[in-house]
């Protein structure tokens, strides 16, 4: 496992739906997970506090179609906004990566222990009516010119 880790806040946005958003994820992520085989991630705990470290195990059983492997933690913000299209406007839920930190893993069959840290001043998990925050431990295989492989597990982050 590489020791290098990167953390960043991203301005990446994606439209989820024109209705409620609790527990939703971007459509491409849902497709990535559906198409992913041979990659799993299991967090050792499903609840944590801000500032905590969370341990997880990434399980690779098939390296054939995974690409460059990395694991990390992602906080996704889901927020409602009025989106206009021509003369019409509607209430839509958009998503933005509020925080993410990744570490590279060797792409070989086996189990890899990873530890990620939840920043002390990041948002906590929250499922609201117009604003929500969702935390996930994610393993992904980055591919050039193809949909990334992806596996994830939600972690509920308390304040």
């Amino acid at each position: 496992m590489s020791e290098s880790a990167g953390a960043m806040a991203s301005g990446w946005k994606n439209l989820i739906s024109s209705s409620g958003h609790s527990g939703s994820s971007p459509p491409l992520d849902a497709l990535r997970r559906k198409l992913t085989k041979g990659l799993e991630v299991r967090a050792e705990q499903t609840e944590a506090r801000r500032g905590d470290e969370v341990r997880a195990v990434v399980v690779v059983t098939d390296t054939g179609n995974i690409g460059e492997l990395e694991a990390g933690i992602v906080c996704r913000e889901l927020y409602d906004e009025t989106v206009s299209s021509g003369e019409n406007s509607s209430r839509c839920t958009l998503t933005n990566v509020e925080y993410e930190a990744w570490q590279a893993l060797q792409c070989m069959e086996g189990e890899y222990a990873v530890t990620v840290t939840i920043p002390a001043h990041a948002p906590y998990s929250y499922a609201g009516d117009c604003l929500s925050f969702r935390w996930e431990i994610v393993a992904r295989g980055r591919k050039k010119l193809a949909l990334d492989a992806q596996a994830s597990q939600e972690v509920w982050v308390r304040p």
Partner: peptide, 12 residues
């Protein structure tokens, strides 16, 4: 009571 949070596109 939950504490205050500010994010890129909203706040609690």
């Amino acid at each position: 009571a939950l504490p205050e949070v500010r994010s890129s596109n909203g706040q609690l």
